[in-house]
Structures are given as C-alpha cells and as structure tokens.
Simulated assay, not measured.
Amino acid sequence: MQTPSPQYRGYRSFDYLEPHADYRVFDLAPEIGRVAPYDLGLTDEQTERVTAILEQEHVISLHEHPKVLTADPHQLREYNHTGRNALGYEGLARSGMSALFDNFMNGTNCVTSEHGWKWNDVIFDLGLRFADIAKQDYVVLVRTVAEIEDAKSAGKVGLVAGLEAATMIENELDRLDILYGLGVRQMGIAYSMANQLGSGLAEPQDGGLTTFGRRAVERMNKLGIAIDISHSSDRTSMDVIEHSAVPVFITHAGARSVWPTNRMKSDEVIVACAERGGVIGIEAAPHTTLSPEHPEHSLESVMDHFTYCVELVGIDHVAFGPDTNFGDHVGLHDSFSGHLTIANAHGHVEHPRVPYVAGVENPAENFTNIVGWLVKNDWSDEEISKVIGSNILRVLKEVW
C-alpha cells in the first residue's frame, strides 16, 4: 500500500451534508487496516521498483466497487436501500491507481425494489455518487482517454462509470443514450440472469444474444460505450464479440481451464475476445479465481489465472479487474447471494472458504501487491506497463 497522494486533502463522502440530519449514518468498515498487510518478501530494491512503476505508469483497474461497506454486513441491505454509498477516497489515495472502472451497486441497488437493476434505482445510484464526486477534487469523473491522461498528469484518480448489466434499459434503446449522457462509459450485457439483451452465465439454457441485444450492441458501439461480457453466457459472449464493431472487455473473470465454474470464461471466449483486440481483466472477488495449486483464495490463485491467460492469448490482451471494495466482501456475497445468483454462477467445486482474499482484499492494496508480485517474478517493466494499464487504454482509444 502506498503513502497517501499529496493531491488528496482528506475529503470524506458527504462532507457537504450534515450527518443524521441530511442522511442516515451507518457504522462503516475501515478503508485502511481492516486486514493484515500482505507480505511478498520483496527486497528494498524491488520495493523501490514497485513504487517507481506505480508513480510512472498508468495504473487502471478494469473493474472495482470502491464503496465503503457497513462494518456489519447484515446492515448492507438497509445501507443500499438509502441509495447513498460512501466512496473510499482515503483508500483510493493510497492505491497507486490513476484510474478505475467503478461499477457502483450493480445487482444490489435495492433502493425501491428488493431485486435490483431497476431503472430508477440505477439513476439514483449514479446521481448520488456523481454529486459526491462533484464536491471534491481528488477523484474525477472521466469520459475520454484524454481525461484519464489528464487525471494521471495531475496526480488524481480518474473514475470511469460502469454498469455490470444493461438489464435496466428493458426494451428502451434510448436509455443507453441517457446513461451515456450522464457519464456511463462501460456496460455489461447481462448479469448472470437473462434479460432482454441475452443470456447470463447462470441460466440453464443459453439463448445467446437476442435481436434486441444486437441493436443494443450497435447502439453502444455508436455511442462509445465499452461492452463487458464478464457475466454473460458463453454463446451470448461469442455473439457479442462477433457482432460488435470494436473490441470488447471481459472486465473481471478468470479462466475456466484453471478453475472449472461458469463464473470463469472458456478458452474459446477468451481467445475470441483477444482475436478481436479485446482484453480480459483478471478478477479477485472471494471464491472466484481459485486454482488447483492455490485453492485457498489469495493473490497467488489470482496470478495463476493471469499467467494462464497470458500464455493463452499473449501479454497484450490481459489486465486486472480485481472487483473489490472496502469492507467484508465475503459478508456482502452472503447477504446478497440470491440477488447475485452466486451459487448458480460459481457451481459446486469444493474449495476452502476464506474470510478475505489475501493480497487483493481491497482497492487500496491491490495494485501495490499485483505489481510487487510481477516484480518479484521477473516480469519486465514493459510487460508490467501493459497489464496494469496500457492494454486497457489501447482498447478505449478504439472504443471511445
């Protein structure tokens, strides 16, 4: 974990409001120090190299949820019901990241409904986050590659607004334009369960991309919304890759050949994505990217998926989308397992349960440890630069 950025001036979410009077206050998880630091055993020279890389290179997470969870996971539903999630500014200031794709509450945005993905709830979620961001100057909403580069130059963090599924547009194609107008620049097709666009990875039958889904892909291409197929079924993923005029992202997943669950992507999908110029971001949400060599989920498990994907499709098509937040991510999964269809997506492969993923537990520590692992394992500066940021920028220059 890095020292705080000098550009961060200590702002906390909703500092512009009066606690208790203007919004409901919850006891939140700490952004720093919730779990023990991860020791990679680096030498002083290696540590200096990690610091230099983080300072000099674009460091971009392809998928995060940088909100701060409640200290008690049982309060998460009430917390999300308010529509107002705190953003972890202090943690981001220590992360070394220059930009991240924020995917907000995704399927847990139960402001007006118990089941998420409602149009009004998504707008509520986006609007409150954007209002909070507008009241400070360290995290900046970015909508172009130039704005990402400007944020890096200024020592700030660029936030790309993303959504894990297009379920909320229902059959209204122009809602994509509205979301683009509000600042959304990345969107998934389906989140595990099928919707009007296509099938999710948890469905028993894989219907592929629908006719409406094809129109939605075309509209996202025209607008410049990057498409994510992380939670889409295999056939839907292949259809999207084929139908999109520009490369697509697998923002947060791993390789099914390493860990055989639906939540991981097949070699066929990963290769097809890469052949069209796309990138897979390796994820680290609890109990996803495990491996036979490291079934107790940790940074080592995550990097087993990374090395496999690099060998499969090459260094130019792999990045990182850790998919983490500040707080008890395992508790979040337990609280929203029905909403997120976790059991159907992850399957029933036996593995040890962990309280957190050591080394990639939250956005503040992820890239310090990822870069540390790469340095320790003798990856070159050029290779590290590609996988921590420049591969993502290459795709965005084509898509946006």
Rank of each mutant, 00 (worst) to 15 (best):
A202G: 12
H63A: 02
F26S: 11
V68C: 00
L332N: 00
L176C: 13
E170W: 11
H74K: 12
G41K: 00
G198V: 01
A71Y: 02
L393R: 03
Y138K: 06
E268I: 06
E147A: 04
P292A: 01
L126W: 02
N362G: 12
S199T: 04
V357C: 13
A202D: 10
V111S: 11
C110G: 15
T210A: 05
I229G: 06
S113R: 14
I32H: 00
V302S: 05
E350Q: 09
R256M: 14
T47M: 11
V349P: 15
D121W: 08
E78T: 10
I123T: 08
L87H: 11
N362S: 14
R24L: 15
L126S: 08
L201G: 04
D102P: 15
A272F: 09
L299V: 07
E57N: 05
L128K: 08
P322K: 09
D267H: 11
L223W: 01
M1A: 10
Q196E: 13
N369M: 11
V258I: 12
G33L: 01
M303F: 03
G277R: 01
L87M: 15
V184E: 05
A274H: 05
G158S: 05
P355T: 00
V269M: 13
L182P: 04
G96H: 09
Q136C: 10
N109K: 06
R84K: 08
S390I: 03
N262T: 10
S5Q: 11
S385L: 03
E203H: 01
S337M: 06
E350G: 07
Q75I: 02
P66W: 02
G116V: 07
F212W: 04
T108V: 01
R235A: 14
L299S: 10
V310W: 08
D177A: 15
M303V: 03
A99Y: 03
G41L: 01
A151G: 05
N221S: 05
R394S: 10
N262L: 13
G327W: 00
P295T: 09
Y38M: 04
L182D: 04
H317W: 02
H20Q: 15
T167I: 13
T167R: 13
S244C: 11
I250M: 04
E398M: 10
P363A: 14
I133E: 15
N85F: 11
M105D: 12
S61T: 09
P260H: 02
G188V: 01
M1Y: 12
E18D: 14
L42C: 14
A161S: 08
F336G: 01
T288K: 03
S244K: 01
H339I: 12
Y180M: 06
